[in-house]
Computed example of a mutant assay.
Amino acid sequence: MDAREEEEEDDEEAWLQLRPAEPLPSQCCGSGCSPCVFDLYARDLARWEAARASKDRSLLRGKELPCYQTGLMARYVESLRAGDTAFWRGPFGNFFYKPNQPGA
Rank of each mutant, 00 (worst) to 15 (best):
M1I: 05
E6C: 03
E7R: 03
E8R: 08
W15Q: 01
L16K: 08
Q17K: 14
P20R: 09
P20A: 05
L24C: 12
L24A: 09
P25A: 10
C28W: 03
G30W: 09
C33F: 01
C33E: 06
S34I: 15
P35A: 03
P35I: 05
C36E: 00
V37S: 01
F38A: 00
F38M: 06
F38W: 11
F38Y: 11
F38N: 01
D39H: 06
D39A: 07
A42M: 00
R43D: 05
R43W: 00
D44S: 07
D44I: 00
D44F: 00
A46G: 05
R47A: 03
A50C: 08
R52D: 04
R52Q: 11
R52E: 06
K55C: 03
K55N: 10
D56A: 02
S58E: 05
S58V: 02
L59M: 13
K63H: 05
L65T: 12
L65F: 08
P66G: 06
C67H: 14
C67G: 06
C67N: 10
Y68A: 11
Y68K: 12
Q69G: 11
G71N: 10
L72H: 10
L72A: 14
M73T: 12
R75D: 04
Y76T: 13
V77T: 09
E78T: 07
L80D: 13
L80W: 13
L80H: 07
R81H: 14
A82C: 13
A82K: 14
A82S: 14
D84H: 10
D84M: 08
D84K: 04
T85P: 01
R89C: 09
G90R: 08
P91D: 09
F92A: 12
G93L: 08
N94P: 11
N94M: 13
N94T: 13
F95G: 03
F95T: 15
F96R: 09
N100H: 14
N100A: 15
N100I: 11
Q101L: 12
Q101C: 10
P102R: 10
A104I: 10
